[in-house]
Write a protein that binds this DNA or RNA. Structure first.
Length: 307
DNA sequence: TAGGCCATCTGGTCCT
DNA sequence: AGGACCAGATGGCCTA
């Protein structure tokens, strides 16, 4: 019936996100205090039990529990409660760790947006598709077709997420998902530039990496193998649509940082990631090395990873 | 109001 | 015994 939250209210996303964050903080604070409340509740319960025992004593009723047994029982119950509370705290911590890892994953799949998060399930689906799409690209050993890449990327995703990915790729989701023949291969097609159609050459004047093809051209045709030119695949979003001289400080400091959908005349729907590639990361070096080599087969890649 | 998403609690199971 | 992990239950928030 209703589509997932992601993308459902994009125009007010920042407000919505901040509100949601406040709610999360409130909820977290509420549950962080829950253990204390439970302790108070337990104490009240014990006090009630004591009162009951006293009434029973005053009423001449035989004691059901000797002080010794009662103390032993209470200790056991407290111990069980304490263990349960500790287990709950551990479980919360574990889930926070899991969510933290998921957030890290969000930052490395295409179209990351800190303002409008992908849901957990969509993040996992997109990550799976992304891996598959990249694997297919490497296996093919040829320049990938943007539409085919996008189709793989969007397989099984919800419509809002599909729309976002399509937006990142400057494609029309309805068209590129309709049928394989609907879209002219991107390298031969005019390039959408905001709302206008512009030539590839014109686009190249404005962007070093305006489109997927241009990124490939820029990358593969760069003069020096040691060039600092960003490769077509980034840690954070696949494509950089920013002019070199428009890079934010964050992006400039992050060699492989990227923002998606930042074309002129079109509001960016994502923010630069705070992610910074570690200096010893092998990923850029591998890409640089692969630039002048044929792609490895999938089996070779897998062997390399597992050995 | 229904349904999606989320955080948390909880009891069970497995492992060390 | 205790911790990690898992899955079901629950309740809150949000949107269409």
């Amino acid at each position: 019936m209703r589509e997932p939250q992601f993308g459902a209210s994009f125009p007010s996303s920042s407000v919505h996100d901040s509100l949601r964050q406040e709610q999360k903080d409130h909820r977290r604070q509420r549950f962080d205090n829950l253990d204390l409340r439970e302790e108070h509740s337990d104490r009240d319960e014990e006090e009630r039990d004591e009162d009951l025992d006293e009434e029973q004593d005053e009423g001449g009723m035989s004691k059901k529990r000797t002080p010794r047994r009662r103390q032993s029982g209470a200790t056991c119950s407290d111990r069980a409660r304490l263990r349960r509370q500790e287990a709950n705290a551990r479980e919360r911590s574990r889930m926070h760790g899991l969510n933290s890892a998921l957030e890290s994953l969000r930052k490395v799949v295409p179209c990351y947006s800190s303002a409008q998060k992908l849901s957990k399930i969509e993040t996992l689906r997109l990550a799976k598709n992304y891996i598959r799409a990249l694997s297919e690209t490497l296996s093919a050993g040829t320049r990938p077709d943007l539409v085919a890449f996008a189709r793989t990327l969007c397989k099984g995703l919800s419509q809002p997420t599909t729309n976002l990915v399509a937006g990142c790729l400057q494609l029309n989701a309805g068209r590129f998902l309709a049928s394989p023949g609907d879209i002219t291969p991107p390298c031969d097609a005019p390039y959408a530039y905001g709302n206008a159609e512009t030539s590839r050459a014109d686009a190249s004047k404005h962007f070093r990496s305006f489109s997927y093809c241009n990124m490939y051209d820029s990358y593969y045709n760069s003069a020096s193998p040691d060039s600092q030119l960003s490769p077509p695949v980034n840690y954070n979003g696949m494509f950089s649509f920013q002019k070199p001289d428009e890079q934010t400080e964050c992006v400039a400091s992050c060699r492989y940082g990227a923002t998606c959908c930042g074309a002129p005349g079109r509001a960016s729907i994502s923010r630069p990631s705070a992610y910074t590639a570690s200096p010893d990361s092998h990923f850029p070096n591998e890409l640089t090395r692969m630039r002048n080599q044929p792609f490895q087969t999938q089996e070779q890649l897998n062997a390399g990873y597992h050995n």
